[in-house]
Amino acid sequence: MMRLTLTGGMMATALLAAAPTYAQPSGSATLDAVKARGMVICGIAGAVPGFSLPDSQGVMRGIDADSCRNVAAAALGDATKIKFTALTTTNRFTALQSGEVDLLVRSTTWTLGREANLGLEFAGINYYDGTGFLVKKSLGVKGAKEMDGATICVQPGTSTELAISDYFRQSKMKFTPILIQDLAEIQSAFLSGRCDSYSTDSSALATFRATQPNKDDFVLLPDIISKEPLGYVVRKGDDKWFDIVRWTYFATVAAEEYGIDSKNVDEKLKDTNPDVRRLLGLEGDMGKALAIDNKWAYNVVKQVGNFGETWDRNITVLGVPRGINNIWNKGGLHYAPPIR
């Protein structure tokens, strides 16, 4: 009898002692899954220059792709631990809802309907955009108001589709929509002249134009007919994962604001500015509060770069001005709350 109790007691002690060695659940199902997998799965478009498009080496390039890498660097400490899943405009939300991807950075516009009805949450905006029109120069059109009766190529299931519909109704004009889901197919329909105009987010139009061999034959109309804030989307109900994604974006903006970039980040470790020290994980346990490594922001900036670097590398090279996509103290809209 005595022995039995003793054995029981020993087993209990052993269990207690062993408990801390098990992986501690972080309270976020998504983060746990990401850690167990050792990889972040990110939904992107995979065919939009400047946003996500593989280069000649097969490496995914673009501001959306780099936004995904930021999250991998923050959550796992390694920006290369990322798997990209190419999604269409019509299957992107289902892929996120069903858990096929951990987050979605696919030129997706933040709207009330999507956040309230789809069980999704927008964690940040990586591009302030608006719907524009691309036309052939030979058409002789100078503005969107001259587009009455035009045939317009649009991707179905996008907010662009609704924006154009609203705009033409408001302006008492008519148009014929051509809706093709596949990006390459709709672009070829526009190039072949099936449509007078190709309409989508003006950023995508600018980058599409920039990658055409005869880019001077196309004009981007000056009218921007809607607000299209494009951002990071996560599932509702996993607040900790939401926090990680949101603050990763803020960290890249804050890094640009403090002048920290991928080249000088190691020198900045010696900086005495408490804001910089907190951001880089030298003070304040900011990472621990997010249930990730304290060096999270350091890893992001070191491996991917600050917001401005990401922008210049992907968007500036295509000749698109930064405009409202600058950080707040340089006339733009990107603003990070205090990281403390």
């Binding site: 405009t89 019509t90 939300f93 289902t94 309907g113 999507r114 009805n117 789809l118 069980g119 179905p156 299931g157 996008t158 589709e161 609704l162 051509i178 809706l179 093709i180 889901q181 596949d182 197919e185 709709i186 329909a189």
Partner: peptide
């Protein structure tokens, strides 16, 4: 039809479920 942009019932229901999220 959805591949070549003719709006049949599948194409329109896909657009609908995308706008409303009710797959």
């Amino acid at each position: 039809a959805v591949a070549i942009g003719f709006q049949d019932v599948v194409s329109l229901s896909q657009t609908t479920l995308n706008q409303t999220g009710q797959a």
